Amino acid sequence: MLNHYAETYKNELLNEVVPFWEKNSLDKEYGGYFTCIDNSGEIYDTDKFIWLQARQIWMFATLCQKVQKNEAWKKIAMHGARFLEKQGRDEFGNWYFSLNQKGEPLVQPYNIFSDCFAAMAFGKLYEIEPKERYAEIAKTTFENILKRRENPKGKYNKIYRGTRNLQNFALPMILCNLSLELEHLLGSEQVDSVTDSVVNLIMNKFYHKESGLVLENISVGGEFVDSFEGRLLNPGHAIEAMWFIMNLGIRKKDIDLVKKAEKIMFQQLEYGWDNEYGGIFYFMDIKNHPPQQLEHDQKLWWVHVETLVALAKTYTCTQNDKAKKWFEKVHDYTWNHFRDKENGGEWYGYLNRKGEVHLNLKGGKWKGCFHVPRGLLEVWQTLER
């Protein structure tokens, strides 16, 4: 049984990780959150990245909803929401990528994931503070995301259209989870419509049946494209997507979908595991050619945390010994390498291939208050059930 791990994950979440962000991340002068925080809790850069601001709103609102009605957590969520509501969007309702500390725009709204996590944040905020404007922000943003699906970067897309048109895995993956997060606002009919199409795309197009692996990019028609982008694998992305799809399968009472997601998850994990040093590779090439990403052999926090969530969900559904053994293996690697045993608090994010800390930051441009606390919460509550 794995349920004895539940208390370990709960304690780490509530006594180490959440207090780190409560203590260090709030900008009490201008609003919003700092995310560029080193291992001692010092702020080393004050720029604010919209998707990380939104993720922290969602995280603290989720803690209020799923753990306890804690007024301090609610205040932290509202603190970020006030900043984003006032500063986060352009005149067309598109969410910027980043702002300076005061909330002045730095980078244009080219990145649709700012919108995705803003919708998720205000949707969750509405559940703990049911003000109609929060629901409207979430729904309007979600509709804008759907309108941009075919060309997410819009006028900021640097790709020359028509020569090698590709579709990327990330947005369909996010829509699996985002739709479920917003079901209380969208209704089950719209959730079914969106998720049925993206699940079909993921499981029948991005999933490369011949290899058993999930591609990061395919042609607009769903075919394999033999290029750097077309050969690219991101095992962590695929594994995370599979636990989203398991949730959808459970919601639909579709056991075949759950089993297929479990099978694909294991295929990615087994292929992506570094048998020499342990851990899961960041990027790989499906033909074993050299990847173009120089960081391809690094070990990243979110990849491993999301894998633990997927394995916990798999074990809860199936009780199979394979899930148990893999959970224990990934748990040991993750807790021994990413967790800061000296300072406590939030975990490290970036290791080299050997598992040594590569950057001693606890948060930055891409890492904020999200994957570690969400993962700890998901594993705790999944195994406790």
Rank of each mutant, 00 (worst) to 15 (best):
residue 312 A to M: 07
residue 196 D to L: 14
residue 185 L to M: 03
residue 140 T to W: 00
residue 1 M to E: 15
residue 381 Q to F: 01
residue 279 G to Y: 07
residue 201 L to P: 09
residue 342 E to S: 09
residue 74 K to Y: 04
residue 23 K to V: 14
residue 258 V to A: 12
residue 278 G to D: 01
residue 100 N to F: 08
residue 140 T to P: 00
residue 6 A to H: 07
residue 48 K to Q: 11
residue 264 I to D: 00
residue 63 L to N: 06
residue 117 F to R: 09
residue 300 L to F: 09
residue 67 V to W: 13
residue 323 A to W: 01
residue 199 V to W: 02
residue 61 A to T: 00
residue 121 A to C: 09
residue 195 T to S: 04
residue 120 M to R: 14
residue 240 E to D: 03
residue 220 V to Y: 07
residue 61 A to W: 02
residue 109 P to Y: 14
residue 379 V to E: 11
residue 211 S to A: 13
residue 210 E to S: 13
residue 280 I to T: 12
residue 38 D to C: 12
residue 53 Q to M: 07
residue 280 I to C: 06
residue 275 N to T: 12
residue 296 H to N: 09
residue 246 M to C: 04
residue 48 K to M: 11
residue 11 N to H: 15
residue 332 D to G: 01
residue 300 L to S: 04
residue 73 W to F: 14
residue 367 K to G: 10
residue 52 L to C: 10
residue 175 L to C: 05
residue 45 D to K: 11
residue 170 A to G: 12
residue 142 F to Y: 15
residue 170 A to P: 05
residue 74 K to D: 03
residue 107 V to M: 11
residue 162 G to M: 07
residue 244 F to Y: 12
residue 377 L to N: 08
residue 375 G to Q: 04
residue 124 K to D: 00
residue 355 G to T: 00
residue 10 K to I: 02
residue 182 L to S: 06
residue 169 F to G: 01
residue 53 Q to V: 07
residue 325 K to N: 09
residue 316 T to N: 12
residue 368 G to N: 02
residue 45 D to C: 13
residue 93 G to T: 13
residue 294 L to S: 14
residue 121 A to L: 11
residue 291 P to N: 04
residue 137 I to K: 10
residue 145 I to H: 03
residue 169 F to S: 09
residue 38 D to L: 05
residue 115 D to M: 13
residue 286 I to K: 01
residue 218 I to G: 02
residue 237 H to T: 06
residue 363 G to I: 03
residue 308 L to C: 06
residue 361 L to R: 15
residue 106 L to F: 07
residue 220 V to Q: 06
residue 238 A to I: 08
residue 149 R to G: 01
residue 239 I to Y: 10
residue 269 L to K: 07
residue 161 R to I: 12
residue 163 T to N: 05
residue 93 G to K: 08
residue 85 E to S: 13
residue 10 K to A: 14
residue 12 E to D: 15
residue 316 T to G: 02
residue 125 L to I: 02
residue 226 D to P: 01
residue 52 L to K: 13
residue 102 K to A: 13
residue 122 F to I: 04
residue 243 W to D: 00
residue 326 W to L: 09
residue 312 A to T: 03
residue 243 W to M: 05
residue 286 I to D: 02
residue 349 G to V: 00
residue 137 I to W: 05
residue 80 G to A: 09
residue 83 F to S: 04
residue 43 I to D: 08
residue 17 V to R: 08
residue 132 E to C: 01
residue 152 P to F: 07
residue 280 I to F: 04
residue 341 K to C: 05
residue 80 G to L: 12
residue 289 H to V: 08
residue 188 S to K: 15
residue 159 I to R: 14
residue 268 Q to M: 14
residue 240 E to I: 11
residue 189 E to Y: 03
residue 105 P to G: 08
residue 190 Q to D: 10
residue 241 A to S: 10
residue 269 L to G: 07
residue 57 I to H: 03
residue 223 E to A: 14
residue 184 H to R: 06
residue 357 V to W: 10
residue 333 Y to H: 02
residue 196 D to M: 08
residue 304 H to I: 01
residue 143 E to G: 03
residue 85 E to M: 10
residue 343 N to I: 02
residue 71 E to Q: 15
residue 34 F to R: 05
residue 352 N to E: 02
residue 163 T to W: 08
residue 45 D to Q: 13
residue 291 P to R: 02
residue 385 R to Q: 09
residue 70 N to G: 06
residue 306 E to C: 05
residue 27 D to T: 01
residue 169 F to H: 15
residue 245 I to M: 11
residue 147 K to Y: 06
residue 178 L to H: 00
residue 117 F to D: 01
residue 95 W to L: 13
residue 93 G to D: 04
residue 216 E to I: 14
residue 170 A to E: 04
